[in-house]
Amino acid sequence: MVKMYSLSTCPWCKKMKRLLDDEGIAYDVVDLDIAEDDEKQQAFAEMAEHGLSPAFPITIVDGDVIQGYHPDRVKAALEAADE
């Protein structure tokens, strides 16, 4: 399962979404700058759980957290999740 926290305006987040789309990966995304308050609070709670600052994108692949635009690390996490 892939989840992403992002900003709707953020270029790195757009690149990460494009990467996942190109790889044909289904993912849940929360754009925190336009999300509803309860969704926002839930996202911040989960980020706090992982000890993450609000820097985006945050991509979570089966519990493996990747903060920032790191295509190689996301692909590696996807491959590991497939095994």
């Binding site: 900003l7 305006t9 953020c10 270029p11 790195w12 925190l32 700058d33 609000p54 820097a55 985006f56």
Partner: peptide, 8 residues
């Protein structure tokens, strides 16, 4: 305004 698109 033209706020940084990467910052909340």
């Amino acid at each position: 305004d033209f706020y940084c698109p990467c910052r909340m």
